[in-house]
Design a protein around this nucleic acid. Structure first.
Length: 399
RNA sequence: GCUCCUUUCGUCUAGUCCGGCCAAGGACACAGGGCUUUCAACCCUGUAACCCGGGUUCAAAUCCCGGAAGGAGCACCA
């Protein structure tokens, strides 16, 4: 073993270690020597012996001499990453397309902003497109707010997001029908006319109902009837998945159902509406989305959608699950804000006390600071709470 | 109940994949000092963390096993 070489490197780090902490320590110096010259690992005992000698020499030196000698060496310091981490699956020159897909039943709050900014930032980083897509396929329980469409676009612009195109799922129903019919014709889907309770029971026990084995012609006929004669709740279109799947909600999940309720965008033109997992999967494919960033509440949906992507032989986009950016206090949730407004405790969605994007705007918060705050917080999977003090500090630094 | 996920200073995080420049870095907050007529701002300094217990190894924040705590999901919502 090249004893002199070890001695030389060990001396460098022993001096540094002694200067930083008063005296040099074997473990620390050995680590650094081994990381610089990995081949010394072959004979660690020998290396330890040599390094111990060096350390004893160095520790006996007067402080001034150590400082003088340390100055002769240069030490590299690890560089810290700036911004979002690289996506390991991205190949050189690859574009990353993302989308922000809110339900327009309310206005954007800081939790939405996190997802939107991260998506926008990644699409910018990899020269891709960033879409704003309104997932408005339930006119009843998630009744769209007509003003929310334009306001969300405004909010995104204020946040510095570069929207490539705005899409409303309610305007793409024909497209979803086309793909639904393809699934029926390929034998991957069937119309189920069982009562809801019966269906839930069958699903729970992993049993196929009679509808599942009906012919394609019969299924297509029932599909046509969904749009005309069947009433709400009488028929749904289900995807054939795996009736033995450990999670019963994944077994033959529902893709379309009947909702007789006027939609603010399309009125009463459609009554058969796709569910989130169907419309979202179709659009992600159609829009060539390569990266989906979403909250962890969607974990199960990814599994459901996988069956759909497989049925069409499509590639599933990469998914990044992130924890929620939460707000502390009484106005943490959208419903809280709604109540506060109705009770007059807030003047509206743009009240400076509301944790909505509109609220931050009237409050005079710097959107660049919100953006930087979100990016600095990164893509952790656990929840965190909004820190306005830190946003103010970033804002100060920026101005 | 079942399934999945997460855990690093007070807070938000870097580092974890692939053990060794980590006696763990940064930011915010906090404390002290400087500057200023005062406050703010600014500059300097400081306090402070690998959830717990085992194991592997010359070496563990990093790998393995066990436990704890927290979160999410189990829809004809998204």
């Amino acid at each position: 073993m090249p004893e002199n070489q070890i001695k030389e490197i060990a001396r460098k780090y022993a001096l540094k270690n002694a200067m930083d902490y008063g005296s040099a320590r074997l473990g620390a110096v050995l680590n650094k020597v081994l990381s610089e010259v990995p081949k010394f690992r072959e004979n660690i005992k020998e290396a330890e012996k040599i390094i111990t000698e060096v350390i004893n020499e160095v520790n006996a030196m007067p402080k001034a001499d150590i400082e003088k000698e340390v100055a002769k060496y240069t030490f590299i310091k690890k560089e810290e990453r700036i911004g979002l981490p690289e996506l390991e699956w991205v190949t050189p020159g690859m574009q990353v397309n993302t989308r922000f897909a809110p339900n327009p039943s309310g206005f954007m709050h800081i939790g939405h902003a996190k997802i939107a900014v991260l998506c926008d930032e990644y699409s910018k980083k990899y020269n891709g497109r960033f879409y704003l897509r309104f997932d408005d396929t339930d006119p009843k329980t998630k009744k769209p707010l007509p003003e929310a469409y334009a306001q969300t676009a405004k909010d995104l612009e204020w946040l510095g997001c570069n929207v490539y195109q705005i899409i409303k799922q309610s305007e793409r129903i024909e497209l979803y029908y086309k793909f639904a019919e393809e699934l029926i014709r390929n034998g991957n889907a069937y119309v189920c006319t069982c009562a809801k309770e019966e269906m839930q029971e069958n699903r729970k026990r992993g049993i196929a109902c009679a509808c599942r084995s009906s012919s394609k012609e019969e299924a297509l006929d029932k599909w046509a009837k969904m749009k005309t004669v069947y009433k709400e709740g009488e028929a749904v279109l289900r995807l054939k998945t795996d009736l033995a799947h450990p999670n019963s909600s994944i077994r033959d999940w529902v893709m379309f159902r009947i909702i007789d309720y006027a939609h603010p965008v399309t009125g009463t033109k459609y009554r058969v509406w796709p569910l989130y997992n169907f419309a979202s999967a179709v659009d992600d494919h159609e829009m060539q989305i390569t990266l989906v960033i979403r909250g962890k509440e969607h974990e199960l949906n990814q599994m459901k959608q996988q069956y759909l992507f497989d049925a069409f032989s499509w590639h599933m986009p990469h998914v990044l699950e992130v924890g929620a950016l939460k707000v502390q206090g009484e106005l943490a949730h959208k419903s809280d804000i709604k109540i506060a407004i109705s009770e007059g405790r807030l003047s509206g969605w743009d009240d400076p006390r509301a944790p909505t994007i509109m609220g931050f705007r009237t409050k005079g918060v710097n959107p660049k600071a919100i953006r930087e705050y979100i990016i600095a917080s990164g893509i952790k999977k656990h929840d965190s709470y909004l820190d306005l003090q830190k946003i103010a500090a970033i804002s100060k630094k920026l101005s």
